[in-house]
């Protein structure tokens, strides 16, 4: 199938809501919350991942969440 044929199919596909209502335990409850969380994470990637990482048990904390950039990135430097 060519890209054009694939795109013609893609344009016709409709959204399908998840069949079960959110359980209350979910990290995100609906599409609006997803959009907000995605945008906030985009604004501050290091803060977002630091928040995720803080849910784990560490021997000792990181000196910095993010140093350098790709392809030489250092994440959670010094953390054990």
């Amino acid at each position: 199938m060519s890209y054009e044929e694939q795109m013609a199919i893609i344009r016709q596909i409709q959204l399908v809501d998840p069949p079960r209502p959110p359980s209350g335990r979910l990290p995100i409850q609906n599409l609006d919350e997803y959009r907000t969380q995605y945008a906030e994470a985009l604004e501050g990637q290091p803060e977002y991942w630091a928040h995720v990482a803080s849910q784990f048990a560490w021997f000792s904390p990181w000196a910095s969440v993010l140093e350098e950039t790709l392809p030489d990135v250092q994440g959670f430097r010094g953390a054990l």
Binding site: A41, Y48, V52
Partner: peptide, 22 residues
């Protein structure tokens, strides 16, 4: 991916970029 229970799916698509992935 979908954010399960929360975001709608499109049959054949691979979902939305997860938070923290630009």
């Amino acid at each position: 991916s979908s954010i399960v229970g929360a975001t709608p799916a499109k049959p054949g698509a691979c979902g939305l970029p997860l938070p923290g992935h630009a």
